[in-house]
Amino acid sequence: MPDALLRVAGLRVAFGPREILRGVEFALAAGESVALLGPNGSGKSTCLNAISGWIAIAAGDVEVAGVRTSGWPMHRVVRHGVVQVSQSRDLFPDLSVEDNLLLGGHTRSIAENDARLPEMYALFPRLDERRRQVLRTLSGGEQQMVAIGRALMSRPRLLLLDEPSGGLSPQLVAETARTMTALRARGVTMLLVEQNLGLALKAADRYLILRDGLVADGGAVSARSGSYDDIVRAIYL
């Protein structure tokens, strides 16, 4: 991929003696949405955490927009335009919805945030109704909306989403799916880790399958013509 926005090469991550990622290689073009699939423990979230700078890598390279970001602390990676929505969301529970969103854009100017905030409320009308509400009083689904909105406030080049449907009711999963589709339609470049295969493939142009810390398979979602049985087989068998 000559004009890759994200390039991951030979990525290795170990927790103590256990090697979680053993040389992961892939690339993402700008505007592309890619789902990272795989069984539990295959290293999907570790891969996102390594790209975002939250965990240290043992070897390999991560390059974003032609700049090597591996080894950078997370705040520097964020300022370079790579923003993660973590599995635990990591929001600010005692601040209002609006303050949470504004903090997402704190690296941007006040004018940029003023312009961006109405866009977020248009994307998530429910948050508009609750903009003054303290975050901890929101439902899990609403908090997920804040987490995604907060990440989008800084206009990231690349959005990393870790299990956006995790812990949500089926109704809220459907709502999350709509959000993902809307983001994809807006051309947001996304790398998505998701256990819900239906949601993942609806939101993605391409999928990659991680197995035992390596990319084992992958391809275009459109080539599957609605039947994902072989992807399920590739993941679990």
């Binding site: 939250w54 602390p73 705040h75 990591d90 929001l91 529970p93 907060r150």
Partner: peptide, 13 residues
């Protein structure tokens, strides 16, 4: 309130 959250929005914790 959340150190990881702060790092996720680009604050040098």
């Amino acid at each position: 309130q959340s150190e990881r959250g702060a790092a996720l929005v680009g604050i040098n914790v």
